[in-house]
Every structure is written in structure tokens, then in C-alpha cells.
Design a protein around this nucleic acid. Structure first.
Lengths: 191, 191
DNA sequence: GTCTATAGAAAGATAGAC
DNA sequence: GTCTATCTTTCTATAGAC
């Protein structure tokens, strides 16, 4: 057997990693299977040994993107829940995130792209969206009075703030937007 | 002259109308020039008498979309500023808007699509984004203490709420999201 | 499993007739 | 101004050699 199972799994993972980065950056249609494979130092033809088609790698890339993003990292023991949540919100609504200098959150980077896709993809989006809200809820419950409505508003502000920031052409406006969302989000979360 | 100037202007407007609807619904790449022209009962070849290329009609479609959307309508004299702003926020964060049963706001429907485009398109987006914030500021100044930060947070919530709502697969979650954003947005605007 | 080659389809843009 | 025809490119997906 010239190729081990381990090798196959690693190749698959490499493709998925490129996929999550490229689809976030450029959207479904602007990324070709050739692009994905070139980033993995492979050629087009090899793609179909790993994924059924383009849509299926896109769907998996969403999950992969969340796995790598800051939001799903474990809280360091040195921080309180409140400190950690503050750090997460600030990192989310940051220039680095908007400029994609850190792993992108698919919830913000892919939101419009996903709206036009099939059930499978939207179901994945819905799932990770609920996870984000649940994670914040859990981190807030001990030190805050905020309820589910507050949290839904906060995540809309976070996702919206980052998505809008990416579409703007004016760095000053982006910075004002991000800082406003940071302040108002933390205000809602710390009440 | 077999075709009048008026006829040309009308044809152009018809194309633009299809463009604003289709690009909002499906995104840049999923709409072909053929699609646009078929909706105007014309064929591909005629397109280039009206627009330079696909990108330029996309750019104009953003402006056209805003022109038709609720947000730019004039306030009826029978309503106070406060009543009108409440109506606008509620209409924006509504199921009808998310489902595109009323003209779509490009700020929400095209946000990710635009992030990956060239300067011209992003400049247009930035302009209408600022217009939205300015319009709300003007409507708020007489009855509310809210500042620019509040307004930026509110519009992020509005745009984010609608964009996320479109990507979700679960009507209950969408409804909870929309109603939470409505409540929190109006809370910020009425303080 | 990965490669090259290619089939087949779609779409942007142009040319020339009317 | 609008039509049909066409050039050209790009891309998904498959076939077959290694």
C-alpha cells in the first residue's frame, strides 16, 4: 500500500485548512478546486479522493474554521469568566480579525455567502451560531444578569460589526464601528 | 433614430432594477449578465450598450437598492421622529425583510459579497453605510440622549441581525434573533 | 492516492447584421 | 439599440495511467 491511512488523513486535513482560509477570504465562487489543491501542493484530480464535491468541502470548511477560531479555545485558568469573555469580545471585534490576520470566524466572514446555499450548509451555520450564543451564556451566568435576548443582540453586533468592517473602505469608520460595538457589547454583557 | 433617448433610459432602469433585486438575492457570482437581461426581456448582447461591464452594473445596483429600500423613504407628517424611527427599525429587523418579500437593504444582503470587491464597490458601500447612520442620528437628536457610538452599535445590530437571519435554517431562532435585536436597538435609541 | 488529459458546461465580452 | 453568433476563458468533474 503506497499511501498510508495516516497520510490520507493528513492530506485531507491540509486541504480542509486551505479551504477554511480561502473560502472565508474570498467566498465560495471565487475559490476553485484548483486553488484549494495548489495550496496543498497537489493537483485538481486528487481532490475527489477526499471530498465528494465542492459543496461538501465548503460545508466542512465552516466547521474547521470555527475549530481554529479564538471563540472555541479553552479559557486559561488564570482568568475569570468575566475577564475571558471580555478578551474574546475584544479579539473578535478587532482590526486583526477584520483584516484576517488571525483565523477568521465563519459566522462573520461567510454570512452572506451561506444565505444562498442549500440546507446542509445552512444547518451547519445554524449549529455553530447556537454554539457561540451558548458559550457566551455559560460564561456570563455567574457574574451577569444578562438574559438570552441580550446575548443574541451582542452576537449580532459582533458578527455584524466584523462583517461590515470588512466591507468598508475607510479605516477610521471601521475603527469607530469596532470600538463602539466592543463597548456596547460589553455593556450588555456586564449588566 | 429608431430608439429614443427616453427608451434607452427606461431600458437601463429596467436592467438596474433586476440587477438590484438579483444581486441582493444571489450575490455577484450567481447572477449572470444573461440573467439580468432575460429579466428585462432582452438578450446578452444588448447589455454592453448600457453598462461597461458586470462590475459596474453591480456597483450601481447597490445605490439603486438603497434608493428603493424603506430606509430612504421620507417620514410621513403624521408621525413623530421617534415613531418613524421605531417603525424603520421594526421593518428592517422583520421576517419580511429577511425573506426578501420587501426590497432588500444592500447593507445587509450584500455585506460579505462586497468585502471581496474592488475600491469602487466598497466606496459605494461605505457611503450608504454612513448615510444610514446619519439618517438615524438626525431622527434621534430631538428626543434621545444617544450618541454616535450607540448608533453605530444599533446599525451593526440591524445589519448583522438581518444578515444572520438569512443564513439560519431554523425559523424559531431567526425570530428570537430579530425580536432581540429590535428590543435592544430601540433601547439604545430611546435612552 | 496522485497524476495528466479531457470532456462538458457556463459565462464574460466582442463583432457585425439589421 | 438590439439581435445572433462566436471567441475565449474558466471551472467542475471524470477517465485512465502509474
Amino acid at each position: 500500500m503506497p499511501y498510508s491511512k495516516k497520510h490520507k488523513a493528513e492530506t485531507r486535513q491540509t486541504i480542509l485548512k486551505s479551504a477554511s482560509r480561502l473560502f472565508s477570504a474570498k467566498g465560495f465562487d471565487q475559490v476553485s478546486i484548483d486553488d484549494l489543491m495548489q495550496h496543498a501542493n497537489l493537483t485538481r484530480g486528487a481532490f475527489y479522493s477526499h471530498f465528494k464535491n465542492k459543496q461538501s468541502v465548503y460545508s466542512e470548511a465552516i466547521t474547521e474554521g470555527v475549530r481554529k477560531s479564538r471563540m472555541t479555545q479553552r479559557k486559561p485558568d488564570s482568568l475569570t469568566d468575566q475577564e475571558w469573555i471580555e478578551e474574546l469580545v475584544n479579539a473578535y471585534l478587532s482590526q486583526e480579525h477584520v483584516k484576517h490576520e488571525v483565523p477568521a470566524c465563519p459566522l462573520a466572514f461567510m454570512v452572506t455567502d451561506i444565505a444562498n446555499k442549500e440546507t446542509e450548509v445552512k444547518t451547519t451555520y445554524t449549529k455553530i451560531y447556537k454554539q457561540l450564543n451558548y458559550a457566551i451564556k455559560k460564561l456570563s451566568k455567574d457574574h451577569s444578569e444578562c438574559d438570552e435576548q441580550d446575548i443574541l443582540a451582542v452576537t449580532a453586533m459582533m458578527i455584524g460589526g466584523v462583517a461590515i468592517g470588512r466591507a468598508l473602505n475607510d479605516p477610521d469608520t471601521t475603527e469607530k464601528l469596532l470600538s463602539s460595538c466592543r463597548d456596547k457589547a460589553l455593556e450588555l454583557l456586564n449588566k
